[in-house]
């Protein structure tokens, strides 16, 4: 899985422009899915037909997008003005290298004379090496999105650092589960959703069409094991977190219990996630149509809103096993 995660993490997928990461995922799942398609919003939806004609559908979802920037204006001298997509720090962008989805690179600069604490997005610009407005406009049409350009690398024996790990570990888990899952009685839908960062937009139509009887979302949660971190009980390497609540969902207690019992039965380490300020796609799934029972498994991630996130690969492996065993348990209940 490590290879996939690295490959997925490097791929660009700012919300609304997920083509690159979606193409990689489509290739990864193709051998294991009966069919797949991309919907109007850009969600990648794969199907695996159930063998038992139970009439039930189980949906697995992970978001594939990441925060980024968008070019909205080109100035006379060829500098590109940008706006944020999702939660991305202004100060963190200064001096960064950014890669637009059309493979144009740039460097983020800031208007002179601004003190760091007062900088807003309106003060930033991207230097793409253009010498004129026309030059820049031909390279970066208005509306082109981009991401901070960072590779991923191994950190110690078990850990991985890189950008966008918070969404891509979930995608990798889904691919792994699909690969390992034997014939399954229920119809299975795998949704790689778009536009989670600006407020779980992609998942809404995807959940609506799924009419699922049961769903699981795999994502990430903020770890609290760094110096003076905000209060959180989550620790890297102690297992995936079973979500109890976040800003958008209170997981139905019977699903939380099912996940915990599954973990205990298979002796998988796990932690419990109560996060007041984060959100996931699970909330939008729960409220689709007359309600879709949904649970969520989160991989703890350090430095969440930076381009250098850190995850523990053992947590990812355990998340995959937990999802797999929960699926098996669900079909017997």
């Amino acid at each position: 899985m490590k290879e996939w995660i690295s490959k997925l993490a490097v791929a660009s997928g700012p919300s609304g422009s997920e083509t690159h990461v979606r193409d990689i995922l489509a290739e990864l799942i193709q051998p294991f899915a009966d069919e797949w398609h991309v919907d109007v919003l850009g969600n990648l939806i794969a199907f695996k037909k159930g063998i038992a004609n139970t009439g039930k559908t189980v949906t697995l979802s992970a978001n594939m997008d990441e925060p980024g920037i968008m070019a909205l204006h080109v100035e006379a001298n060829g500098f590109v003005r940008i706006v944020p997509i999702g939660d991305i720090s202004v100060a963190g962008l200064i001096g960064e290298r950014v890669r637009f989805v059309n493979r144009v690179w740039g460097v983020v600069g800031v208007e002179a004379g601004k003190s760091l604490k007062d900088v807003t997005f309106a003060d930033l610009f991207v230097d793409i090496g253009a010498e004129s407005k026309a030059d820049a406009e031909s390279l970066i049409p208005v509306g082109t999105a981009g991401v901070i350009d960072r590779g991923s690398f191994e950190l110690g024996e078990f850990r991985l650092a890189g950008k966008a790990l918070s969404s891509r570990v979930g995608c990798a888990v889904l691919v792994d589960v699909l690969r390992k899952l034997e014939a399954y009685p229920h119809d299975l839908q795998i949704v790689f959703s778009v536009q989670k960062e600006p407020g779980s937009r992609g998942i809404k139509p995807a959940a609506f069409q799924s009419e699922a009887d049961f769903a699981l979302t795999v994502g990430s949660a903020k770890a609290g094991d760094t110096p003076k971190a905000e209060r959180s009980n989550l620790v890297l390497g102690k297992g995936p977190a079973i979500k109890i609540m976040d800003r958008g969902i209170i997981v139905p207690p019977f699903i939380k219990d099912m996940l915990m019992e599954t973990a205990e039965q298979h002796q998988l380490p796990y932690q419990l996630e109560v996060s007041a300020d984060q959100a996931s796609d699970a909330g939008a799934i729960l409220l689709s149509r007359d309600g879709i029972p949904v649970g969520a498994v989160s991989v703890p991630v350090r430095y969440l809103s930076t381009p250098s996130q850190v995850v523990d690969l053992r947590d990812v492996e355990h998340a995959s096993r937990l999802v797999l065993e929960t699926l098996r348990r669900y079909h017997t209940t």
């Binding site: 109007v40 919003l41 003005r81 139509p205 609506f208």
Partner: peptide, 19 residues
């Protein structure tokens, strides 16, 4: 060329299976 503000597209594009 501004990212603030919103309009009915916000609701319409997410209706049903996505529009």
């Amino acid at each position: 060329r501004v990212s603030g503000g919103g309009n009915d597209a916000g609701r319409v594009h997410l209706a049903r299976n996505g529009i």
